[in-house]
Structure formats: structure tokens, C-alpha cells
Amino acid sequence: MVRPELDQSYSNNGRRTGGVPKCCSYKRTTVIICFINIVVALYVFQNLYTSLYSYSYQHSHTAVTYTPDQIKKMEESMRIRKQSEPRKLIEIVKKLKKKLDRREDKVELPQPLKQNLTNEIIELLRGLNSGANTTLQHEAVERWRRQKLKEAKRVIRGKASNSSILPVEAGMLAKVLEFNWAELSSEIGLWIPVNVINNVHDDKPEGEDDFDDIIAGRRLPPECNAELHTDYGGHAVKWGLTHHKDSAYECCQACLDQAKNARPDEKKCNIWVYCPAEEGCHSPDIYQHKLEECWLKYAEEPKVTFKDTYSENYRRNHPNAPMVVPWVSGVISS
């Protein structure tokens, strides 16, 4: 007899393990999972590539194209815009920036040195002719500043043994004279009005005197008798702290108008005092006098309170007093 084939499986040791073979082993499961992951990754990559391609395609088709004429107009517009830039102003700002970058912090001169400089400038101005106008005064002070600056630099280099400038002060003085001269002039009260030169037709009547010192504003009439760097005393007809005028001409005119329209029991203005200095004007009272103050005064016998420069003794007792009297005033001629 032929024995029927038995569908049985045996283990390695000859024992029967069962009638159903194993089809889902660990190795097959791992292979299947890896295969599925590869398929998913390929699907994701395909979608990404498709989206990028479609975006670049759409972008290329929706991009704006310009005609040669439009491109030419845009280039012309950019050229005009560059030409309209304030180049001179930009260059000036750059130069100022470089100059400010070279400057260090503001140097404060010792009070004795500042006093010596003030005395030298006073002696310099006093040595000028009495008829020297403001232009000559400016030139003299500027020459003094340049000479003083050169002397200070020579002291720094050790080439000026007989100089009055101390070596420890030479560096500070050079910086102030070169970079902070305007601030120093303001601190010591040096104010010299600038001569304005106008090339106009000379229709002045013969025999009329010229007014050498030019004051900002309209030409003052002869009856104003304007005097630079002068302060007159007197009874205040109009309080200058609350009475401001744009120019010395208007201040003098206000004095003339007050005298003309004054009541019989009122004092008539015969002295006007005006402050033309931007930093204000000094006076030996408790008030801070500012630019454009116009004082209208009266005095039977007008007397000058200050003339040209404040004395050294006065400035010693009044530390805030500048070197030069900043007021402009005049006595109205009757």
C-alpha cells in the first residue's frame, strides 16, 4: 500500500510543529514596512516637485514685462531724481560731520587764562584808531586769533621758549581758538557787528555824513544819534522787558512816537536803548536782558552809564559782564 503524503512540518529536532506554515515572519514584516515607507516618500517628493514646477511656470507667465520705451523712461526718471538731490548741501553736511568728528569734547579754559585773553583783546581794540569801523575791528581780532593759534601750536611742539603761554595750557588754547572760537567770543562778550556792503547807486546829498557802523535794520535818521556799545541811564518811560522791537530803527522810532504823543503829565522819551545781541545784553540789575529789548528813557541831562568796554574792575565785581558793552543807544536831538 502506498502511504498517503502527510502535510506535516517538523522542527529541526524532528518534532512536528503543526500543519500550517508561518507566512508572516519578522523579516517579511520589516521588508513590507520599508517598502511602504519608500512608496510614501516617493509620492511626497513627486508632489513637491510638481508644486514647485507649477509655481515657477505660473510666475514666469505672470511676470510684468516692460517695453524698451518704458525702460528708457524709468532710467530717465532715476537720472533726474539723482540730479535733483541737494549735492551741495550733502557735501556741506559731510564736511561739517568730519569737522565735528575731529573735534573732541568742548574744552573749558581756566578763568585766569580766559581773563588774560580778554585783556589782550581789549588792548587790541583800544589800540585801533578811533575811526576804525567794524570791518577793521573784525580783521584785527582775526589776525590776533591766528597769531595766538600759531604761538600755541609752537609751544606744543616745544619751539617757543619765550612765549607767555604755559605748556600745560597750550593744548587747550589751541583747540579753543581753532574749533570753539565762536563759543569763547560769546563767553567773553566779544560782539562786533558785521559791515554790510551794498552796491547801490549813491544818491546821498552832498555834505551828509556817512554812518560808519552799520546796524541791522533800516537806516536810522540823524536825530536818533545812534551809538554802538553804549548804554545810557535815565527814568524808564517804556519798560524794555516787555517792549521788544525788531531793529534799532524801530526802537528809536518808538521813542520819537512816544515823545510826540505823550500827554502833558507824562515824561517824553529822549533816550532809547536797544539790545541787538542774540545772547542777550548785560546790565547791572537783577534782570536777564534778551535780544530785541527796547528801553525808552528820559533824563534832563543824559549821561552815559557804559561806553565801549566794561572795565576790568567792573567785570571783577560782576562776573557775568562781557568784555564789550553790547547795547546800542542814542539821545534824541531836540
Results as ranks from 00 to 15, higher is better:
323 M>K: 04
278 E>M: 01
324 V>I: 12
126 R>G: 09
17 T>A: 00
214 I>V: 14
1 M>T: 11
75 E>L: 05
290 K>V: 09
153 K>Q: 13
58 Q>P: 00
289 H>C: 01
30 T>G: 13
229 H>P: 01
14 G>K: 00
201 H>D: 15
87 R>I: 15
94 K>I: 05
301 E>S: 13
37 N>Y: 15
196 V>C: 03
197 I>E: 02
125 L>H: 12
27 K>G: 15
143 R>W: 05
44 V>C: 13
73 K>L: 10
67 T>D: 04
52 L>C: 12
5 E>W: 03
321 A>Q: 02
294 C>E: 03
95 K>C: 14
329 S>I: 04
127 G>A: 06
206 E>F: 15
121 I>N: 05
159 K>Y: 05
256 L>N: 08
82 K>M: 07
34 C>V: 10
103 R>E: 08
55 Y>M: 10
295 W>I: 01
242 T>H: 09
322 P>L: 07
277 A>K: 10
52 L>D: 12
175 K>M: 03
241 L>V: 05
239 W>I: 05
329 S>K: 02
192 I>W: 07
19 G>Q: 02
80 I>P: 02
25 S>G: 15
309 T>A: 01
311 S>R: 03
282 H>V: 00
275 C>G: 04
255 C>S: 05
6 L>G: 07
217 G>I: 01
104 E>H: 08
205 P>G: 06
246 D>I: 05
283 S>M: 10
325 V>L: 02
174 A>G: 08
221 P>D: 10
206 E>R: 12
277 A>Y: 05
89 L>G: 06
151 E>S: 02
334 S>W: 11
293 E>T: 01
136 L>N: 08
118 T>V: 07
43 Y>L: 14
136 L>M: 09
320 N>C: 00
299 A>H: 11
111 Q>D: 03
64 V>K: 12
258 Q>C: 02
40 V>T: 12
333 S>V: 12
33 I>L: 15
31 V>F: 15
9 S>P: 02
125 L>F: 07
261 N>G: 09
120 E>L: 07
203 D>V: 13
89 L>E: 15
25 S>L: 14
171 G>E: 11
195 N>T: 15
